[in-house]
Amino acid sequence: MSANNLNIRVEKLGKRFDRVHEKPMLLRETAGIFAGRSQKSVDDLWAVRNVSFELAKGETLGVLGRNGSGKSTLLTLVAGTSFPSEGSVSTRGRISTLLQLGAGFHVDMTGEENIMVNAGLLGLSADEVKRRTPQIVEFAELQDAIDTQIRYYSSGMLARLGFSIAINVSPDIVVVDEVLAVGDLGFQKKCMGAVKDLQKGGATIVLASQAPVLVASLSTKAIWLEKGEIKMAGDPSEVAAEYNAEMAK
């Protein structure tokens, strides 16, 4: 595969969290510096370690793993909200993210205003956002509630709006974390369709899920994370089958 086609390259990626058991305090640490004492973190936790993969345009990576296996951390690293402790993440193009339900929404704003802000932040001009708004509203099935403040939305409505914005801004890269699970079955089906359209359009997608079926049906590649490291990588249906077998034990 030619390197020209790549949208994401992750190399030996690692993310360490210091698990400090006491709250850091400005005065204490400053005093520590002046006293020549270095602050030692009691224990550190590698949430992600030694993860490498490459994704070309149109490819989709499914990330499987239990709770706490590092899926979400890996996704924030790819999305660029947190920074690696070692290794590198390289991306090209517009990244749209769905990492948490309702993140980035302002509860005091109406659905329409949130579309304006969120789509704008993803790099669309105000005119472009206005032109795409009907399309976003229609896909989210929120015609009746779009001029209502987000605080009165149900979690399903939030998920729909978030997803609809994320896919309708012509992203080059989409990072999705579990959010699809919230919508009802009909909407989930619609999302699958939209994801397939994005793939055809050349977008690169990274999605984390607990559902091997979803990963098997949507991904072109899959990895299975355990304790932050890749336990298995390869064909989605094979990885999903292995994962299923392990979970059934």
């Binding site: 390259r9 390289s90 991306t91 090209r92 193009g93 472009e128 992203p171 050349g202």
Partner: peptide, 16 residues
């Protein structure tokens, strides 16, 4: 959508 995914994605952004 108009202006859809650019044919050749732009320059890399690297995070280390």
């Amino acid at each position: 959508p108009e202006g859809g995914p650019s044919p050749a994605s732009g320059p890399w952004t690297h995070r280390t």
